[in-house]
Each structure stands twice: as C-alpha cells, then as structure tokens.
Design a protein around this nucleic acid. Sequence first.
DNA 1: GTCTATACTTGGATAGAC
DNA 2: GTCTATCCAAGTATAGAC
Lengths: 192, 192
Amino acid sequence: MDAAIDVLRTDGYHGASARRIATRAGCNQGLVFYHFGSVANLLLAALDAVSADRMERYSAAVSHAASLVELTDVAAAVFEEDLDSGYAKVLVELIAGGSGDPAFGAGVAARMETWTAFAQSAVTGAVDPMMLAATAPASEVAYAIVALYLGLEMLSHLDGDRDKALALFGRARTMAALAGALGIIPTTRGDE
Amino acid sequence: MDAAIDVLRTDGYHGASARRIATRAGCNQGLVFYHFGSVANLLLAALDAVSADRMERYSAAVSHAASLVELTDVAAAVFEEDLDSGYAKVLVELIAGGSGDPAFGAGVAARMETWTAFAQSAVTGAVDPMMLAATAPASEVAYAIVALYLGLEMLSHLDGDRDKALALFGRARTMAALAGALGIIPTTRGDE
DNA sequence: GTCTATACTTGGATAGAC
DNA sequence: GTCTATCCAAGTATAGAC
C-alpha cells in the first residue's frame, strides 16, 4: 500500500499498474490480486490510508487554531504540506482517474464526504453562528472550501507553481485580520 | 476531433484511446497518427476546440451582464451548461489525466491560462476598482475563481450531484444583491 | 488520405507449484 | 502467502497496399 501511494505520487493514476506497484514494493504482481482482488481496490485502500493520515494532521492543526487568522495560517501550512509531500497529487489523480469508472468514482466520492464533513465542523467551530446565519449555512461554505481547495491543488501541481495558491491563503489571512480588527467577527472562537 | 471530444465525454481520459476514438468517428485507427502524430496531440487539439467554443459562449454571456447580480446569473447558467453538455467532464478529464505526463500537463496548463486571463478581465470589468484595491488584485481573484470553478466541476460530476454547486451560485447571487442594496458595490458596472 | 495488417508493449487477472 | 508462468485484452505506432 505504501508502494501504491508512492507510485501514484510519482507516476500518477495512469502509471499505477499492478506490475509497477508490485515492483516498487519489491514483491510479485500476483499479490496485488491475492490481497486486494483488483488494482482499483488497492488504490481505494491507499486513498483511505492517505486520507486517514492527513485527517489526523488536519484535525490536530485545526484544533490548535484559536482564531480565524490562525485558521488561515494552518490552512496555508497544511496546503503546502499536501503539495510538497505529494499527497495532493495522490488525491487529485484518484479523483480524476476514477471519474472514468463509475464504481471507482463512487468510492472516491464517498471518501470525499469525509472531508466536507470535516470542513463543515471546522467552519461551525471557527465562525460566529450569527455570521453564518447572515451569509450562508456551514454546509455550503464547507462544500465551497473543499471545491476551492481541490481546484487550487489541481492548478498548483498542473503548472508547478504553488506561489499563486499560497498568495491566496495570505490574502485570506489579511482579510480575516481586517475583519477581526473591524469587529465584524470575533478574534477568538467559542466552544464547538 | 468531434469524436475525440465525444469519447472524452463518455469514457473519460482513460477510455480515450486511438482505437476507440477512430471507431467513434467511423474511420480507421491509423488516421489518428497520420493527422495528429499521437493521441496526446489529438486530445490537446480537442481541448482547444472545446475551449474556443466555450470561450465564445462565455464572452457573449458576460458581455450582456450589466451588474454583479447578473454576472452571478450567467455564471450559474454557463456552469450548468458545462455540466449538462459534458464539456466540464472533457476539461476535468484532460487536466487530471494529463498531470501524469509532464509534457501533456504543460500543454493543458498553457491552455488554462487563457481562462484565468478571461476571468481576470471579467473581474476588472464587473467590480469597482476601489473595491479591488481594498481587498485583492484582480489576478488573485481570477485565479481563485478558476480554481473554485474547476473544483466545483470536479465534485459535481464525481458525485453526480449538481445541486450543491448550483446552490452556491444562488448564494453568491443573494450576497451580490445584498451588497448592491447596501451600497457597498455599484449596481451597474462601468466601462471596461 | 484511407485502409489492412502487423510488430511490439503493457496491463489485468488466473492457475498452479512451492 | 509468495512465486512463476501464462492467457487474453487493449494500447501505440508503423509499413505498405490502394
């Protein structure tokens, strides 16, 4: 499974064949089918591993953020981690590659809901309920955040330029600080 | 080329082989290589055709929008068109599938810049320069818009649910109307 | 320009020895 | 559980007849 993640990272969905993964893992190609039944199952299992790993990191980072400004800081930090570590590529490759096969796409879609749920809880925890009521429900905000995050990861590793995306995180930070200074939003967040 | 677009739409990047495209076009597989040299070149040519087609539609729609509210309306309309017509799928498949091959990815990335440039001109045309100066430069806004648009298209055709994305466009419309009513932004836009 | 035929490669998946 | 060996399908690309 580590080999599957590694191959996805370096060779993409297209290159993630049973043979290549097995070679990377230093074992035989037949074992993929013995243990996972199919390559698609192995890739989904790899996605689960990556998701669990990143979710742990995200949860820890978000729980330490006491204000919206700090939240934008951790968002920028984990975003950069995703790009540097190649986890972003793994996710994007699977989302994109999987959209061809309906069954595989459904599996990926189900795993994305974990992330929208996480984003939603982060939003409700960090933003004033009054503010949400005046603008948009947390579920919509969460969906938009996940979509934006995904789009930024795609564009960033497509043109190999992470600076544009990081500039946006910096911009969000500035605006959050401004909103806090103006008293529009609280500078510390309440209990979740 | 029409066949290439059609195959990308129905079978995705994975299924877009020379054989299948040729079959769809009712001709022979060898012709792909005679006319385009490789499958990748054909796909890039198909992307150019789709992009030109959609750009024409987008430009016409945006030029008719006289206010930010109307701009959100046309954005929602063309977004739904993209999903229904399958153009969104073509784009997403190529972006995602192409990220595996560096050369192909570079070709796709170059074609994306056309869209960020378009988004930037739409932003500068529709938003008060004072407002931009106070928040973020048009280039950053444009990049964010393209990323969000891309992410929404991916998520929408991944889970087969366009309602969540369309709800966001409706929300943007409401907020634009609210901002206009409060006098934060002008209700009609100036010359470009 | 378009076709047939073909060489070559790679991939998914299974059977069976150990 | 892991290996070798193998089958079969599908892909890219080219050569050559027409």
